[in-house]
Computed example of a mutant assay.
Amino acid sequence: MTARSIRNLCAAALAAAILLSAPASAKVRRRSNLALVMNGQNFPDPGVIRTGDGWHAFSTNGVVNNQKIHVQMAYTPDFKSWTFRGTKDAMPKLAPWIHAATPKIWAPDVTQLPDGSFIMYYCASLAVKPETHCLGYATSKNAEGPFVDNSNSAWICPQSHGGAIDPAGFLDAGPNKRYVVYKVDGNSIGHGGECGNTVKPIVPTPLILQQVNVNNGRDLIGSPIQILTNGPANGPYVEAPSLTYMGGKYVLFFSSQCYATPKYDVSYAISDNITGPYKKYGPLFVTGTLGLTAPGGMDVAINGDHAVFHADFVKKDLPGGGSSNSPKDAGSAQVIEQAPWANDGDLPAAKIEEDAL
C-alpha cells in the first residue's frame, strides 16, 4: 500500500467500542449514546493493550506540532476519557533496516510477555527498498516505551510477494500458544486501480498466521499459514487482521475495500480452529454506520471485551456537543457500545438497530 501515508492527512479518528456477547438471536445494536474521543486527533491503524493502570493505544506515524512521531500514543484509565500523548514517541529511534528519511511506521501492536516486559510488532519501509514494507519488533520494559529494535534486518519480509504489513499479536490462552497475524502486502505490486490492485490480474493479499515463542514473542515456530485471502467482494485486498477468541470460536476481524475510498470497512471471519478454515461474514462497520465514513483497522482485545478502530466522522451536530478541529471537519472519534455477535459465533450481517436508551 504505497500511498497509505495519505491516510494520515485524512483526519482518521480513533473510535472505541465495548464489544459484548449477546443472545443467539441478537442483531448488531447500538447500546449507548455516542461520545467524543480525543476530539478528532489523527490516529490511524490503532492498536490497544490493557495493563494494570488502564488502556494504552498506539498508532501509525504522524506529525504533532511539526514534529514527526514514529509511533503515536494515547491512554485511558476507563476506556472513556482518552488522553493523547502528543509528541511522546513510543519508538523514537529507528532500527538499521528501516529507511531513515521515509520510515513509514504503520500499524503498531503491543503485547505484554510473561516476564512483564512488552513487545511491539510494527511495519516499516526497507532502507534498501523504501517502496516495500516489512515487519519488525521492538521491546520495552514499559507499556509506553521507549521501544527499541536493534535488528539489522527485518523480522518477517516476503519481499517477492510485496512485503508485509499490519501485524497483531494473539495469545491463545487455552493451549498457551502465541501467534502473530499479518497481511502480505500484495497490492503494493498490483497492476493499478483502487489501492493499486483492482486491475487484473489481481494480486493475492493473504492474511497469515505465524506461531511465535510464547515467552519472547519473536522466535518463529513452524511455517506461516494462510488463513484468509482477498476475493472478488473484497476489492483490492483484505488487511488489518485482529484475532480473538470468544464463544468457543476464533474470530478474525479484518478490513477490505480500499482505505482511500468510502468503501473501506470492518469485516470478520469465524473458525472452530485457529488455523481455519475461516468463513467470512459482514461487513460489520461501513460508511454510514453510526455516522462514520470509511471505518477500518479494528484491533480487538482478548476475548473481544474492547476494540478500537479508526474512521472519518463528518462534522454535523456531533452527539455530546463539541466539533472536530481537523482540516476536513472529520475525525471526531466515538465511544460505541456494541453487541455484534452471538455466543455461538453466528455473527449476523451488519444491520444496525436502535435500542431504547
Rank of each mutant, 00 (worst) to 15 (best):
S25C: 08
S326N: 09
S117N: 14
V37Y: 00
N42G: 12
V148H: 04
N66G: 10
K315T: 07
G116F: 05
G288R: 03
S125H: 10
V308M: 08
R29V: 07
P201N: 09
T244S: 10
I274Y: 01
N66A: 13
L347S: 03
P277D: 11
S160R: 12
F309M: 11
T51G: 10
G116P: 02
S140V: 04
G193Y: 07
L94V: 07
I227R: 04
T261Y: 05
L357M: 09
Y245D: 09
G222D: 11
R30G: 03
P340N: 13
A15S: 14
P201A: 08
K88Y: 09
G345L: 05
S140A: 15
A16F: 06
N216E: 06
Q226N: 07
G276D: 02
V203I: 15
S153Y: 12
N273Y: 12
I227M: 07
Q72I: 09
S223I: 05
G304Y: 02
S255T: 11
G320C: 07
L243R: 02
N8C: 12
A339P: 06
I98S: 09
G174Y: 11
P77F: 10
N42T: 15
I119Y: 00
V214S: 12
M246F: 13
H70D: 08
I165W: 00
G217E: 01
P277L: 10
A143S: 12
G86Q: 01
A101R: 14
S332R: 01
P175K: 14
